[in-house]
Simulated scan of single mutants.
Amino acid sequence: MQGQLSELDIRSIFQLIDIGQQTGELYIESFEGPTNSWLVFFANGGILYAGRTNEQLNRLRDILHPLQLSINWADVNLSHLAPLRPPEYGALWWLLENNHLTTQQAHSVLHRLIEETLFEVISLHQGRFAFQFHASLSPQLTEFSIGPLVKRVIRQLQGWLQLQPHFSSFYDCPILTDTYRPETASNLPPLLAMANGKIPIIQISRRLNRSIFSIANGLYPYLQKSQIQLVHHPSASGSPSTQGSPIVNAVPRIVCIDDTLSVRQAIEMMLDTYGYEVTSIANPVKALSLLFSLKPDLILCDVTMPELEGHQLCAMLRQAPWFQSVPIVMLTGKDSFVERVKADMAGATDYLTKPFGEPELLALVEKYVGQGNPKRLAPETLLEQEISATLNPETWSHP
């Protein structure tokens, strides 16, 4: 099941899944503002989890903030997770299994994660969706009934809409103005204490364990009196972006996995000119072990390869803690919605359609790892010779 949101809205899709007691994954992509995408997991018509496709752990940390837990996030081990399990959901399981959370707390946190996602997607009108019928998340923490969740979110959205145009985005950041005169400046209410122009409304709602509408409604009287103003932030990615952060002293390391020699050579030539360290690998199976030694900053991976398909390779890499946050870009000859869904569900960060030129490739690479360093020292040739001799079948000699 797939289509455009202009033809079938999110609430109708949820209703169909609920009535049919379906199990699977719903992919949603927005055309409104910055391109964003989400995944919602279902089992027998109930919702198991919902979040952005690029969701890491920042949102979970914010929601856990009121609990004041002592967690060393470096200890969170996600390596045992299934390939398609979202890191956020896996981390929640880890916290539960290691007794950082009770079962009731974990259920409450999961409910907030789902509710926030529904608040983002239910009002979308421009975009597309795809539902894949297959086994969903495993293990399953709990199932939430669709009906009560959707009704609750719709009430919040109706309240939010009544506050427009005063509030245009829940990623806007409130800041106190000079007209605010508290009786005791050192004892601000928690809501106003966070109004520093740096924390968006959606993050305040997480940290105070209140809905987005509740936060906006609480801020509204101060906005009317000009005691606060909103700082607009156009980016609603929810995740830190590396775009526009050039790397000058370091040399970004890029690995290209593609079984076509001409593609590898073209990528090497284009990126080497701009100061990137590029390693190309033809055999995807061999690439799995070598990548752990190379620890690249960016991976370019062909979709269609013998022995191991690109989406499978991407999903395998996402199991390892090191590769949870490394950008993985799929190289595909098909520019279609289905290909984008496959890439997102495998955990890919982005995709690039073949054939592509130098401007497209360079723009994508700079987006994720910054600029190269053309003045870098000449790279050692030992690794290059080893890869050429052992991994690229075009160079093998036959007895």
Rank of each mutant, 00 (worst) to 15 (best):
G24L: 03
F129E: 02
I47K: 00
R128A: 00
I122A: 03
S70Y: 12
N98C: 13
Y89Q: 03
N54W: 13
I63N: 01
S30H: 12
L113F: 06
S37I: 04
Y49N: 07
F133S: 12
L96N: 01
L92K: 11
E32G: 00
P83S: 02
Q132F: 07
Q105M: 11
P86E: 08
P66T: 07
W93Y: 06
Y49Q: 09
L96G: 08
T35W: 14
P148Y: 09
L95E: 01
E143G: 10
S70E: 04
R61E: 12
F119L: 05
L60W: 08
S30Y: 14
H111W: 09
R61K: 08
S145I: 08
N44D: 12
I146S: 11
P148H: 04
G51V: 07
H100R: 12
A91E: 08
I17D: 03
P139G: 09
I28D: 03
F31C: 13
A91F: 05
V121C: 14
Q68H: 13
S37W: 06
P86A: 02
N54L: 05
L69A: 14
L101Q: 02
W73C: 11
V40W: 13
W93D: 01
G90S: 02
N54Q: 15
N99D: 14
E32S: 01
Q68P: 09
Q22V: 04
A106N: 03
